[in-house]
Design a protein around this nucleic acid. Sequence first.
DNA 1: GAGATTTATCGTAAAAAAACGATAAAGACT
DNA 2: AGTCTTTATCGTTTTTTTACGATAAATCTC
Lengths: 110, 110
Amino acid sequence: MTSLKKTLFAPEDQLLAELAKALAHPARIAILKELAKRDMCICGEIVEVLPLAQSTVSQHLKELLQAGLIKGTVDGVKSCYCINWEAFDKISGLFSAFFSKTAEKSGKCC
Amino acid sequence: MTSLKKTLFAPEDQLLAELAKALAHPARIAILKELAKRDMCICGEIVEVLPLAQSTVSQHLKELLQAGLIKGTVDGVKSCYCINWEAFDKISGLFSAFFSKTAEKSGKCC
DNA sequence: GAGATTTATCGTAAAAAAACGATAAAGACT
DNA sequence: AGTCTTTATCGTTTTTTTACGATAAATCTC
């Protein structure tokens, strides 16, 4: 405890773990799916779709922003969020690289 | 709080979030990579590779087990872990499905 | 059988995440 | 100007995660 051991790992592993953490809550998965479903950006509609308080949703959005998965712009009173496709593709690539690089094994064990 | 809001989401989203959570720590990423690197199962060697106490590593292994990503068998005094390839592929598929299903959008916004 | 190894579990402490209500700032609407 | 909407942030509480040392169980080794 007291210490942040995470920084002792390979940056590559830290990055993937961070991205995985951004996906590690059903609310954030649901937000991403909702954003993808609609062609246009949404804002407060997300709050109505999710079984969470507005402040909580705002927090989840902030985390997705910080992870780079979405981007948000202020549009008058409302805030408009949408998926950051470039980052999304890159992240998708990181995951599939992780899975496939790992998977080309013979499976001698167990 | 006090409540577990996670269960209010779609089972599909809960599952993906759970799997993402299993990957949401660099130690667990490193463990998976290490297991994949070696053809044979390993056990305590993982502890030597990671900058963590033995008990902590054991805990991370337990989480990977519970997520189904790895399987472990007791081999004498030592415990032998390896990647659960079937589950691994399935999980890999879930992630890429999530990413690709989401990605076929026009990108009208932002 | 005595001692050494290996590993899982227990207990505990610190840190982070999840969640909410309340509030504040910024625009919209009369 | 005054009110209503929308959303981000603050403060707080609860829960979960991370991490360790100590210990116990099981197996080797001598």
